[in-house]
Design a protein around this nucleic acid. Structure first.
Length: 273
DNA sequence: TACCAGGTAAAAA
DNA sequence: TTTTTACATGGT
């Protein structure tokens, strides 16, 4: 089944971050085919003219697939905006069709960020791989992300065995056990989502901002504290000089109200050969 | 071997 | 109030 995505759209660029740091058993790239659980069952995505080829060909998958692939982002509007910035203008040409992929499961998004706090994305993925394999049964070769209920029932000591720090193990089990309605956050404005999330132990501003950008798909999010964002700002705008979070925040202001897309183009741009 | 890597909270000053 | 420290694994 062909699911149309408004052009420009590039599947490989949009899902690049699921292979850039290693293999993720819940977001699997194999020989040009991407697989993950969507709508409760394994789905295959493959690049196709005009959009993406989806198996199985169930109409109920159209909206989840479109959402996952960032179809809601206004790339045409961003390209017009980017023309006024030398760096973004070049990145928009070189990364044509890149959209931020939106993890559909809020629990997956938060746990993914918590694992990545402070350590390299490769190290984080290695820990998360063991977590996914331990707490979720593969369906047809691809793992669902572990269910919140399953982790609420786990003990932090089990997570420590998988490589979590003792603090992070408590944060993840605590998040799973909390009474916060993760699905209800999409009805709140950005800053209120940040407030609700950062009220939980282990979730700071950085984690909450990536949740806004990569789960809720909010268009104007700029995680200025992110090391990758700061490195990109440094490399592209400040001649390689190290930048503080505050400097990165100030540079980001020029990208409003397109900061989510700007951040993603800069981050992926940093990984270009 | 040591140090850094897409942070956060708690202790110390 | 602001600054310093501990923390986990993996790559170099």
């Amino acid at each position: 089944m062909l699911v149309e995505i408004r052009q420009p759209f590039d599947l490989a660029l949009t899902l690049e971050r699921f292979k850039a740091f290693g293999s993720d058993p819940a977001n699997l790239w194999q020989e040009g085919v991407f697989r993950r659980i969507l709508g409760g069952r394994p789905v295959e995505l493959e690049a196709a003219p005009g959009g993406v080829q989806v198996k199985p060909g169930d109409r109920a998958l159209v909206e989840p697939v479109r959402r996952f692939l960032g179809a809601s982002f206004d790339l045409a509007g961003f390209e017009t905006f980017a023309a006024s910035d030398l760096v973004l203008a070049r990145l928009v040409r070189e990364l044509r069709g890149l959209r931020p992929a939106l993890l559909p499961d809020p629990f997956e998004m938060l746990v993914t960020s918590i694992t990545a706090q402070q350590i390299s994305l490769r190290a984080a993925l290695s820990i998360r791989r063991r977590f996914v394999e331990r707490y979720a049964q593969a369906l047809d070769g691809v793992h669902p992300f572990p269910a919140r209920e399953a982790i609420a029932a786990a003990s932090p000591a089990e997570l420590v065995e998988l490589g979590f720090s003792s603090k992070k193990a408590e944060y993840v089990v605590g998040l799973a056990s909390s009474d916060l309605d993760l699905d209800g956050l999409d009805r709140l404005p950005d800053e209120e989502v940040v407030e609700r999330l950062t009220a939980l132990p282990g979730i700071g501003r950085w984690t909450a901002e990536w949740f806004l950008a990569r789960h809720l798909g909010r268009p104007d999010v700029w995680p200025a504290g992110d090391l990758g964002v700061r490195k990109a700002v440094s490399a592209f705008y400040l001649g390689g000089r190290a930048v503080s979070m505050e400097e990165a925040r100030v540079v980001g202001e020029r990208f409003g109200p397109w900061r989510t897309l700007a951040a993603h183009y800069l981050l992926v741009g940093l990984r270009l050969p």
